[in-house]
């Protein structure tokens, strides 16, 4: 429909830019044995639109995926077989955390905190990363150790 043409144009424009960016990301991630196929790139682009709709956010530009790839591609916990799925979950978590954190962390800081947790105490567990609190994210970013719980005895 003509009425919806603009949203369509925006999505198409952004998707084209994102596709190009993800191909560029492949050049780096290949060094770590990770590469997205064209089908996976298309699937991640669609997943981005869904993630934005799901999180109720509006975004211009290519979004967080390229930055997530740059931050996570050297992780020892990501293997080629799960690469696309992992990125899709990381993308969902990114927008989810953005909503929880408001404006307190920039995109760059949030991705850095996620990467610290994922490669650190979560040891590659997406579930553990999903359960990270905002406090965990702040601590991960600043490198502050978690306070030990006081022993009641």
């Amino acid at each position: 429909m003509v009425e919806d043409s603009f949203n369509l144009i925006i999505r198409q424009t952004q998707t084209a830019a994102l596709t190009e960016q993800l191909h560029k990301c492949n050049e780096l991630s290949t060094r770590y044995g990770l590469r997205l196929t064209d089908t996976q790139i298309a699937s991640l682009s669609r997943a981005r639109v869904d993630a934005l709709l799901e999180s109720g956010r509006v975004e211009f530009g290519v979004g967080a995926l390229p930055a997530l790839i740059y931050a996570f591609c050297d992780s020892p916990y990501i293997v080629h077989e799960d690469y696309c799925q992992t990125l899709s979950v990381l993308q969902d978590l990114f927008y989810q955390f953005k909503n929880e954190l408001g404006t307190t962390l920039s995109d760059e800081e949030l991705i850095s905190a996620m990467e610290q947790i994922y490669n650190g105490k979560a040891q590659g567990s997406l579930e553990a990363l999903e359960n990270a609190t905002t406090g965990d994210l702040y601590r991960a970013l600043t490198g502050t150790p978690e306070e030990e719980e006081e022993d009641d005895d």
Binding site: G56, G63, D107
Partner: peptide, 11 residues
């Protein structure tokens, strides 16, 4: 966002 964030809540 002063360039800190590429996205915002829709509202």
């Amino acid at each position: 966002t002063q360039g800190d964030s590429a996205s915002l809540p829709a509202e």
